[in-house]
Design a protein around this nucleic acid. Structure first.
Lengths: 254, 254
DNA sequence: GCAAAAGTGTTAGCTATACACCCATGT
DNA sequence: ACATGGGTGTATAGCTAACACTTTTGC
């Protein structure tokens, strides 16, 4: 086994790890970041382990930074997955063989694979700013449309489902967008984001009225030029008011 | 150390454990179940460890049953606490000494106390049905009004805060009451429950209208007699409709 | 000029809220 | 009888939801 990997395995918690559902928004589509495992034909969510001396939230921030290069972004726990049959839909024997082949015969250990509690974190990131980087286990990154996620390793498909549900729920009591959109964005872009997350169409006029009524947007004098058709106005979040709305959990009835 | 306790410690996960905020409702007050530790003068939330072969949700159900005698009740994860400074407000040295004195000098082990991730579960229970039972560590149970919780061991005060916040949030998109109230209850009792959780007064007529509009209540021909004053009607939840409302997460704008 | 997207206001229906009087029961 | 709590309906304000035409721009 790679000595670096060994040190990592031995200086981190064994029974608990973190998996991240990293949501990005691009070309009118909600996407998640996936990693392809070395040596086996399987994709998974980015994840990682917790060093003994860091908090789980710190670990999540670190893992996110390692995979995306981003710091100080929206990142929160959404569920902790602790089934003892988290691998029930997989051919565990075959997977273990492949893992041993790829990572060395001492990689597989009951305590690393049989019984692991995963803390699910979800992150909202600006797609354009992400520099996706694989980890020890993986050698390829991919942004995948939420509606076209392939069968993933472990219970990661379920994790995405649960994260999406949590995200939708969150949309009803907190504003979303600060971390998913670039600094300046147009109202139609914001609307597309909401529509994508909620999975339903919204009325343009009502959406605009609603968003403006929350008093967290600043209309800029500029417009987004260069696109085809009529140039839309640009907006920016008023960070202070946005944060206050986050705190207060004002009802966002969309 | 007690041999039973030793077996328990050794057949359970070491880095992860469960703490339960068990909410009950009695005499118009929201209460939580607390346990008093043996040998030391400290109270904590009921908690427990996870056997290697059970899922964390199964463990939570088991722990709840061990402490309250109840099964099949409302129980769900609300947050996972994984700070590495979860004991920062405590005199850890002194606590450890007391624990060793109470449980044997081999009780304390870095891996059991220094770095432990706690899965916070909250339960809603019918106060009257609970037969509170202490565990290995404790010898006394107490229902404590939510507004009068003493300084607890570990970070358990914070846990109650977070649980209460989650409960309030939940109230806005799911009905609550099935597990907190006896089978038959009056509208004023239900209202008191909501008022207690939300921490604010509600209008009687509007509350009744709202609750009835959700179509999850069944009005019974009986009344609650025996009390002073006019006898109120009894209601019962229509379990099927109630469960559907839980599933659908209909907006409960209270 | 035409197709596609963006800007903008009004109205109707509904829901949330505020509010008061009578009734039943125990003391 | 009176004090206390429970039962019930209505009117108003505010919000949600539905809806269409004009403007801009690239082709």
């Amino acid at each position: 086994m790679d000595p670096g990997l060994r040190i990592y395995l031995e200086s981190t918690l064994k029974e608990v790890s973190i998996d991240c559902v990293i949501f990005g928004f691009h070309a009118g589509e909600l996407k998640v970041l996936l990693l392809k495992w070395k040596g086996i034909d399987g994709w998974s969510l980015p994840g990682g382990r917790i060093y003994l001396e860091e908090s789980v939230n710190e670990a999540a921030v670190r893992i996110l930074q390692e995979r995306t290069g981003l710091k100080e972004i929206f990142l929160q726990q959404f569920y902790t997955f602790g089934s003892n049959d988290r691998y029930k839909n997989m051919d565990v024997e075959a997977l273990v063989k492949k893992l041993e082949w790829a990572f060395g015969s001492d990689f597989y250990d009951e305590k690393y694979i049989k019984r692991n509690v995963s803390l699910g974190y979800m992150a909202l990131v600006e797609f354009e700013q992400v520099v996706a980087t694989p980890d020890w286990y993986t050698d390829e990154c991919m942004w995948c449309e939420i509606s076209a996620v392939p069968k993933l390793l472990f219970d990661h498909n379920e994790m995405i489902e649960v994260a999406l549900k949590a995200l939708r729920r969150q949309l009803s009591y907190q504003p979303i967008g600060y971390n998913l959109l670039p600094e300046k964005f147009t109202m139609p872009e914001l609307q597309r984001l909401y529509e994508t997350i909620l999975g339903k169409q919204l009325d343009r006029r009502n959406f605009q009225k609603l968003m403006l009524s929350y008093d967290i947007l600043e209309k800029l004098p500029e417009k987004r030029t260069g696109g085809a058709f009529k140039a839309p106005f640009l907006y920016r979040f008023d960070k202070e008011k946005y944060d206050r709305a986050m705190q207060e959990e004002i009802l966002f009835a969309v």
